[in-house]
Design a protein around this nucleic acid. Sequence first.
DNA 1: TCTTACGCTTACGTTAACGTAAGCCGAGTA
DNA 2: TACTCGGCTTACGTTAACGTAAGCGTAAGA
Lengths: 134, 134
Amino acid sequence: MQTWTITELAEEFGVTLRTIRFYEEHGLLNPERRGRQRIFHNSDRVRLALVLRGKRLGFPLDEIKRIVGMYDAEPGEVGQLRYLLDQISVRRDELEQRRKDIEETLAELDDLERRCHADLARLSSGLPDVGEDA
Amino acid sequence: MQTWTITELAEEFGVTLRTIRFYEEHGLLNPERRGRQRIFHNSDRVRLALVLRGKRLGFPLDEIKRIVGMYDAEPGEVGQLRYLLDQISVRRDELEQRRKDIEETLAELDDLERRCHADLARLSSGLPDVGEDA
DNA sequence: TCTTACGCTTACGTTAACGTAAGCCGAGTA
DNA sequence: TACTCGGCTTACGTTAACGTAAGCGTAAGA
């Protein structure tokens, strides 16, 4: 059962100590304490990875907290399970909207790139003004 | 050539007047002025749509500004074109990273959902503890 | 002419997500 | 024992992206 110090974790994930402490303060992480010192287990590393992925996706921290919280919810009773299923579908809708946005943007970038190449070709081949092909 | 007032645009896109003015103040929009009043043309609507899509993707406004700026850059000279192509590939990398993150998250949500359904089935069928199937 | 509606500017307030000191503690070491 | 190193807490500072209020301008209707 390996453990990590706060600096080790910070270096591994490329964040500052402040960030990790901040995440703990806001309930996103919950490391063990040996006296005052924080001890991070593998489960904490996984959580941090999840949080940072959420950040890359541009989610605010409180939403990330709810999402990550879903992963380690105890099986609980039927009402809880139904609620959780509901939350899952909400998140899924969000993510699928984002995927659509991303694909649209990527398509436009492709388009833009093509035009750039066309312009470059035009410029370097004697400037035939605005003709369609060569 | 239809035009829009600021309130019309705000209602259509579900944002406040303040937001639109803020975007103008920061160079994301650039509507015509008739006296003091803003007049929005279709190109402005398109820009606003692009900005809001960027927001949904979680990009900060200054990055959105650069991205949107790429779309209406004048063909310019070779150096500019090369720079633009470079920027395009940077953005594409970012977006593809995000897409990966999204797909990972979606996969985990699927997983979680399956477990929820399993738990529900177990609970409602006489509680056979932790058996694999029925 | 008075009011109402819509738009404008200026400016201070607010929240999120940390950054950045300042100062304290305990373990190892020269 | 005196340092230094790594970690800790407390707390004020900062930036982004607006919210919110105050007060003004002007055109259209009562």
